[in-house]
Design a protein around this nucleic acid. Structure first.
Lengths: 198, 198
DNA sequence: TCAAAACGTCTAATTTTTAGACATCATGTC
DNA sequence: GACATGATGTCTAAAAATTAGACGTTTTGA
């Protein structure tokens, strides 16, 4: 498990790092989010604990929202927990709308923060699992659409392939499952990909 | 468009109703959420504007969270926007986690609130559309699983049925699409549902 | 090591598919 | 309404595919 902690206050950074050392295998800290894209590109970050204010002129959290959106733009994005000293309700709501898993205010409680990070990662895993289930299901939908324009010969060849694969190459079993003669199965498999008879 | 407004303060209720009359076709108000399940059962509510505190002894919003969860337990749940005078960040975050589309604090701005309701409904529509797309795609996945255990004869019959349906019953066209002789298509369709040859 | 199962191949009988032809029926276009 | 175009239902005879069964060899698993 790898955690990225981004906060412009060095004392906070040290303190947070201490909290999470032992909880995460790797804890990486950074004083500003400029290097975030590079750090995420490796794809091995499981969670990001992100402060909302970096630009001392802007304490409205828009920096944090910007980087949150940036992090969450990837489908393999890590869990993101936002942390801020100047948090108000509208900011928290906006952050949640943009996909943050949690939003906490300083000062924080160590155990509570650990708990929130764990839950955030779990939630993020769930979201990803759901998303991949969706894309997988969509593949099936696309296949069904393609089937509509297939010739009977192609459908047969396709199904034969599937069943043979399912039977681990056992042609006798596959023929039995398909309800056809073993010889016929041989013939069908000997055919070149697209043979238009006559 | 139908809006449900739940708030224990009658003055607030009247005021909110005024705001949304003209924006929604129907605006129904209630002083407490006890009747919510009954009001939602008709299924014609598009949005709920829900106050977080009804029990005067408990101002932590737990009542609101309870009812939020209750409303969102149905797959056809309406959009929910929470409104509270005692809102803090943790409560707002928890509400968003539980599926609220938005969370606003009193006092409110009329135009802003209208805007938030509209966006909430749009968001809710998007969620539902996504959800129904998922279930539809899952149907296709199930069909593909069933196909695995089908006989070649059954697969052929199934595909023939689909293509014929696709061609609106035009057998000549269907035969052409299937890449088979018209006569053959007649023969296949004349077969009783399950004929195991010989 | 040994038996059961799978493989590859063959044959001859059976069944299916095919192209083509033909008259009839529906379609919609002028 | 007349007419052309395309779909339908049916037939034939040739071509092609499928079938059960058989046989020796190879794999597999106990």
């Amino acid at each position: 498990m790898k955690l990225l902690i981004i906060d412009d206050n060095e004392a906070v950074l040290r303190s947070l790092k201490l909290v999470f050392t032992g909880v995460f295998d790797h804890v990486v800290t950074a004083k500003n989010p400029q290097l975030l894209p590079a750090m995420l590109s490796a794809g091995d970050v499981d969670a990001v604990l992100l402060d909302m204010n970096f630009n001392t002129c802007r304490l409205d959290g828009s920096d944090g929202l910007f980087w949150l959106t940036r992090i969450k733009s990837s489908p393999s994005a890590p869990a993101v927990v936002l942390i801020t000293a100047f948090g108000d309700v509208p900011l928290a709501v906006e952050a949640m709308k943009r996909g943050a898993e949690d939003f906490v205010t300083k000062p924080w409680d160590n155990d509570d923060l650990i708990d929130k990070l764990n839950r955030a990662m779990e939630k993020c895993r769930m979201k990803k699992a759901e998303q991949s289930a969706v894309s997988e299901a969509n593949l099936y939908r696309e296949r069904a659409d393609e089937r509509k324009n297939m010739t009977l010969e192609e459908i047969k060849a396709d199904h034969i392939n599937n069943v043979v694969k399912e039977c681990g190459g056992n042609l006798t079993l596959a023929a039995s499952r398909l309800g056809i003669n073993r010889q016929t199965l041989y013939n069908q498999m000997k055919k070149p990909p697209h043979t238009h008879m006559k």
